[in-house]
Structure formats: structure tokens, C-alpha cells
């Protein structure tokens, strides 16, 4: 958590009768012109598990690390389809994400209905950024506690945007949000220049490598905790297009559980690792780890607030949340 400047904290401790500070509501600027409530909201995003986004000239891909709150719980979904041509990955408060993604769906449908067009990706992201901005300016509200990575494809090609609770939307070649996303960012910064001309398979491999860097020491990517979303023409060599009409059409599709197995295997092959992955997967060490959070701090807040749980749940646990029926689209 960020705290007010040292001089300020000092002052606060001296003023018991005037218990005032600049971080208790969103309509107050600090003397330095900062909005602490917004900065704290950005921290909420960092509490969520990691999400990576990468983009080439032809494709945009999201890769996320799912968490489960425990043995009895499913993994929390982190990928949400908005429309055929737009989808998001979330990090932070899941309930806030549902509100915003629902709004995005309305926006997308509105453009489909009135103009018969796929809403421009930049505009749909801006529409939630505008909403988020009002939550940083009016008393009685709080900034949203969720960050999005948005991929989409429109007349101007594939795109990757980041939406943040500060009310901003930026377009990136590659980006990461959530817990330990800085490690992923380091990987992306070293490699992003090759992304533009990368094939879909290469792009996914880069994304998985970046995602892998956000893991705790003893953890690894598995079919249970990894999900991948793609927009752009399908590659039958790595995607099971038989089971996904969306893939056949190049629309937004999510690969997880057994569906992501092929992608993970291809990635491990590309790194010269055993295709089946580390043995850890076969022998879950879950009992102790289940209740533990990734950061090892504030477990209650983590579980209650982010509802994304821990990455340490048993790998066999099924993915939960809403189903994205591939056949429907």
C-alpha cells in the first residue's frame, strides 16, 4: 500500500484532534496533486492474479493465471467474452469486472444494432474508462478495483488495450497486469519487438513464457491454472477448431482445461522441456497450500475481496464461473 508522504504522516501523528488525511475519500487531492484513493485502487489490481496480453500484426492473445480459493472451489474465470471481436482478461475485484464487462457488452450490442458494425475496440475501452473516471471524482463512490486487458479486432486490425481504475486506457504491443506482473513485463520488454511479425504459435509461446515468469518459485503452468484467449485466424496445428466455431471464424475464443493442453505442450516443446510438464502436477501438495495466498499476506482480504483465490488449488479442480460455449459462436 502506498502511504502519504513521510512529512505528512508525521503531521498526522501530531494532530490528534484534527484526524485528517488526504487518502480517505476520492474527492480529495493531496497537497502534491495526487488522488490516493485512486492509487490504492491500482493496488487492488495488483492483488489479482496475473494476466498477460500480446499482439501481432494478425492476432491478439490474452493469457491468464487462474486461482482457486481451495480444494472445494472451482477456479475463478479471468477471461470474459464481450462480443465476437472483443474479449477481456481481468485482475482485481471480480464483481467490479462483471459490472464493467456487462456495460461493455451493452456498448458492443448497441453498435451492432444501430450501425451493424463491430464496435471499434478503442471506443469500447474508452467507454469504460470514462465510467471509471467519474468514480474518481464524485463523493460517495469508489474507484473500480479492477484492471482489464482488452483484446479486439476491428477495421484497423488487432488491438491490445489496458484499462485501469484511474480511468485511463492505453494501447500496447504487449502488457501485463496483476500479481508479479513486473516479472512478465521484463520478459515482454525484452521480446516485444519480434511480436509484430510472430505467428500465432510463437505469440502464444511468448505469452506463456511471460505468464510463467509471474509464478511463484515452486509453481508451474498447468491445464488447471492456465487459460488462453485468442482473436484472429485459427491455427489448426495448435487449436482444436473442430470444437470451436469461434476459432474457425477467427472470433474471440478461450482455451482452458484440456483445451489448453495442446498450447502448453507446444510451449514446453519450444523450450526444450518435457512435454508433460513438471511432475508436481500429478501429485498435488494442496492441503497446506490451499488456504495460503500467493503473496502470503492479508489472506482474508485477498479471498474476500478479489475472490480470485490462490494459485495453489488442486490442479484437477474444474474451472468455474460462467461457461463460454464455444459451439454457440
Amino acid at each position: 500500500m502506498l502511504s502519504p508522504s513521510p512529512s505528512l504522516s508525521l503531521l498526522l501523528s501530531n494532530l490528534n484532534e484534527f484526524r485528517n488525511s488526504y487518502d480517505s475519500d476520492n474527492t480529495t487531492f493531496s497537497p502534491q496533486g495526487k488522488l490516493f484513493q485512486v492509487e490504492y485502487a491500482l493496488e487492488a489490481v495488483k492483488q489479482g492474479s496475473a494476466a498477460i496480453g500480446v499482439r501481432s500484426a494478425t492476432h491478439a492473445v490474452l493469457l491468464t493465471l487462474k486461482r482457486s480459493t481451495g480444494e472445494l472451489a472451482t477456479y475463478q474465470k479471468k477471461l470474459i467474452r464481450i462480443d465476437d471481436h472483443v474479449g477481456v482478461a481481468i485482475a482485481g475485484l471480480t464483481s467490479d469486472a462483471r459490472v464493467l464487462s456487462n456495460f461493455m457488452r451493452q456498448q458492443a450490442m448497441r453498435d451492432r444494432m444501430t450501425f451493424g458494425r463491430a464496435i471499434p475496440v478503442g471506443r469500447i475501452v474508452q467507454s469504460i474508462a470514462d465510467r471509471a473516471q467519474t468514480n474518481t471524482q464524485e463523493y460517495g463512490r469508489r474507484p473500480y478495483g479492477v484492471g482489464f486487458l482488452v483484446i479486439g479486432q476491428d477495421e484497423t486490425g488487432p488491438h491490445l488495450y489496458e484499462f485501469s481504475p484511474a480511468g485511463t486506457a492505453f494501447e500496447y504491443y504487449a502488457h501485463s497486469i496483476g500479481a508479479r506482473s513486473q516479472s512478465a513485463k521484463t520478459y515482454l520488454e525484452q521480446n516485444f519487438e519480434s511480436f509484430e511479425s510472430a505467428s500465432l504459435a510463437e505469440l502464444i509461446n511468448h505469452g506463456l513464457s511471460a505468464l510463467n515468469d509471474t509464478l511463484q518459485q515452486d509453481k508451474s503452468l498447468s491445464v488447471a491454472n492456465t487459460s488462453v484467449a485468442i482473436i484472429g485466424p485459427a491455427d489448426p496445428a495448435i487449436e482444436d477448431i473442430q470444437h470451436s466455431a469461434a476459432a474457425r471464424r477467427g472470433y474471440f475464443r478461450v482455451w482452458e482445461n484440456e483445451g489448453v493442453d495442446g498450447l502448453l505442450r507446444a510451449w514446453r516443446r519450444s523450450r526444450g522441456e518435457p512435454e508433460d510438464g513438471p511432475q508436481e502436477e500429478a501429485a498435488p501438495d494442496t492441503a497446506a497450500a490451499a488456504g495460503e495466498t500467493t503473496e502470503g499476506q492479508q489472506p482474508s482480504a485477498e479471498q474476500a475481496q478479489t475472490a480470485e483465490g490462490s494459485e495453489n488449488a488442486p490442479p484437477g479442480a474444474p474451472a468455474g464461473g460462467e461457461d463460454i460455449d464455444m459451439e454457440q459462436h
Binding site: 503531521l11 498526522l12 484534527f18 487531492f29
Partner: peptide, 24 residues
Amino acid sequence: IGTGYDLSVSTYSPDGRLFQVEYA
């Protein structure tokens, strides 16, 4: 800082300033 007159735009300081606007 710490006077309590700088937490809201609806509050003037005793010398007639709106600190929240200045902070903005």
C-alpha cells in the same frame, strides 16, 4: 497541510483560499 481547511473544495481557509483547487 493539517489545518483541516484543505480537504474539500467547499471549505475556504481563513485567508480565503481554496486549497483543493490549488492542489488540483
